[in-house]
Amino acid sequence: MLPEIFFSYFACAILGLALLTVTRRNLVHSVLWMLLLFLHIACLYLFLNAEFLAVIQVIVYAGAILVLFLFLVMLLNLREEHEARRFVHAWQGRVAVCLLILTVVVVSLHKVSVQPTGGYTIDFINQTGHTKVLGTALFNQYVLPFLMTALVLFVPMVAAIVIAMKERKR
């Protein structure tokens, strides 16, 4: 009974906070609601026995990406935003199509159940420690994708500087 109550709270909070995030007129409010949303998602990861990913969620999303968004909102100084229209023309049709997709997905997903197949049981992960399990898999089986991630993070760093740099007058 208790897990269901916890899960229901987190599910309602996540969906409600997501709606609050995407409907705010003021972008700073929206980013702050998103901070709360990410913390709830991190709690959901804890609930799924993935401590390391919960910590990474807080550090990367709440710590880095949100600060980036906040900096940008303050940098651009969008004054006209408070009077402007929030939504594009004819948004009702797009919402209807998306709700149709949601219905199809929910109908097809709500009976899914799986049989555990792998060797990473909850006992094994609890015994070894989640970080160690994840690190062992990452640095043995998945070391090439991990190294490619370094490139994936390096190229946008250079590109962001080049794109955002002011062109010099010749």
């Binding site: 969906l15 997501a18 969008l78 935003e81 229209r85 929030r86 939504f87 594009v88 797009r94 709700l99």
Partner: peptide, 13 residues
């Protein structure tokens, strides 16, 4: 996901 998708399609900012 659908909330994000709707917002991506209808927000102007």
């Amino acid at each position: 996901f659908i909330i994000g998708m709707v917002a991506f399609l209808i927000r102007r900012n």
